[in-house]
């Protein structure tokens, strides 16, 4: 079992539905305007926007970035208290209550995927009524990051413990994958060659973020296709 995710950048239109869904699912606090300006946004998932080309031939590129759930995660060995470690199903686990806030993991992460609780955050009414009871609310001084919605994975596994059912491909979906309107995000078991995510990950368009660092991410991106160029090529041939 090796949970992984593919993100088809060709399908992503940068709508940020995944970002909002992630916040709601995982009780990610909103830091407010002032702190946002200081660069303290806490979202576990962000849509990075890059511009390509010179005006007027400008293209916007969107890339949702979350914790890459690296197989060889640089954040794991540096934590002095095992607050971040590897689970047997390949998840890069963050144990909030174990964290003492050295923030070493965040500095070791080349993807800037980790967020820190700068203060004790409050949810203004009525938002405090819709906190997810499955996910702990973090206090100040703790590190947090994308968990691949571990509460949903474990929930499905517990359900399957009765022996009558098994966790089938597509049974578990993190909030981001569930809410993506263009279905750019696919979640599944990378060890199972028949799972959708596994099949997508073998596509010729597949690449991993900062692959040369050797962190072996379990989030696999699919390169966008430049339709204009390919159509031109087709017509030329």
């Amino acid at each position: 079992m090796r949970w992984g995710m593919t993100i088809d950048l060709d399908r992503c239109n940068g709508c940020e539905a995944c970002v909002v869904a992630c916040r709601a699912e995982n009780n990610v606090p909103t830091v407010g305007e002032e702190d946002c300006e200081k660069g303290r946004m806490m979202s576990w998932m962000r849509v990075e926007r890059y511009w390509e080309g010179e005006f007027p031939d400008v293209k916007a590129r969107f890339m949702p970035v979350l914790c890459q759930q690296c197989d060889e995660a640089p954040c794991e060995p540096v934590c002095p208290v095992y607050a971040t470690y590897h689970s047997s199903d390949g998840l890069n686990i963050q144990v909030h209550n174990r964290c003492i806030g050295t923030r070493f993991c965040a500095n070791a992460c080349p993807y800037t995927a980790r967020a820190f609780n700068w203060f004790d955050y409050k949810w203004d009414a009525p938002l405090d009524q819709q906190l997810n009871p499955e996910v702990s609310v973090r206090s100040r001084g703790m590190m947090e990051k994308c968990t691949f919605c571990v509460q949903r994975i474990r929930g499905a596994q517990i359900k399957a413990e009765d022996g009558k059912t098994t966790v089938k491909d597509g049974d578990v979906q993190p909030a981001c994958a569930q809410s993506c309107p263009s279905e750019a995000i696919v979640f599944g078991d990378l060890d199972d060659p028949t799972s959708r995510a596994s099949r997508m990950s073998t596509s010729g368009r597949a690449f991993r973020l900062l692959e040369d660092l050797g962190t072996k991410p379990k989030v696999i991106y699919l390169k966008p296709v430049d339709w204009n160029t390919s159509q031109e090529k087709e017509s030329a041939s």
């Binding site: 690296c70 995660a73 060995p77 095992y82 470690y85």
Partner: peptide, 9 residues
Amino acid sequence: TMGLKTGHM
């Protein structure tokens, strides 16, 4: 005693 994996080490 600590059976936790931490990355590649």
